[in-house]
């Protein structure tokens, strides 16, 4: 388990916005404008990030992306499936610890 600092979030916003650029337009249109605007306004402008591989995304950014997908893009079935995977990962974590 980790706790996000404000600075982490601001950096993560930069990465998330970079990742959203490669998303299909149909999916992107489902995310409300104000959510994207909020990230754009609050991103860390001194942090430069160029996405060339998924491995480069920080965990914070990955979490936000998954959250965005589940909240705005996924249909109920897809949400269920995602929740199953998330729960499974949760169990794995507990088991390992």
């Amino acid at each position: 388990m980790y706790i996000m600092s404000e600075e982490d979030t601001r950096k993560a916003y930069v990465e998330v916005l970079a990742a959203l650029k490669i998303i299909a337009k149909d999916d992107l249109n489902k995310i409300p404008k104000n959510v994207i605007e909020h990230m754009a306004e609050n991103q860390n402008r001194f942090y430069s990030f160029k996405l060339s591989s998924l491995d480069e995304l920080s965990k914070e950014a990955c979490v936000i992306l998954v959250d965005l997908y589940m909240t705005y893009v996924a249909n109920p079935k897809q949400k269920e499936l995602m929740m199953d995977i998330l729960n499974l990962n949760e169990k794995k974590k507990k088991h390992n610890s």
């Binding site: 998303i23 965990k59 992306l65 998954v66 897809q78 990962n89 794995k92």
Partner: peptide, 17 residues
């Protein structure tokens, strides 16, 4: 597709609930 991206992110980073 956002679905593919989110799927691969969850698997790679072991993101949990």
């Amino acid at each position: 597709s956002f679905k593919d991206l989110a799927g691969s992110i969850i698997k790679k980073n072991n993101i949990s609930t």
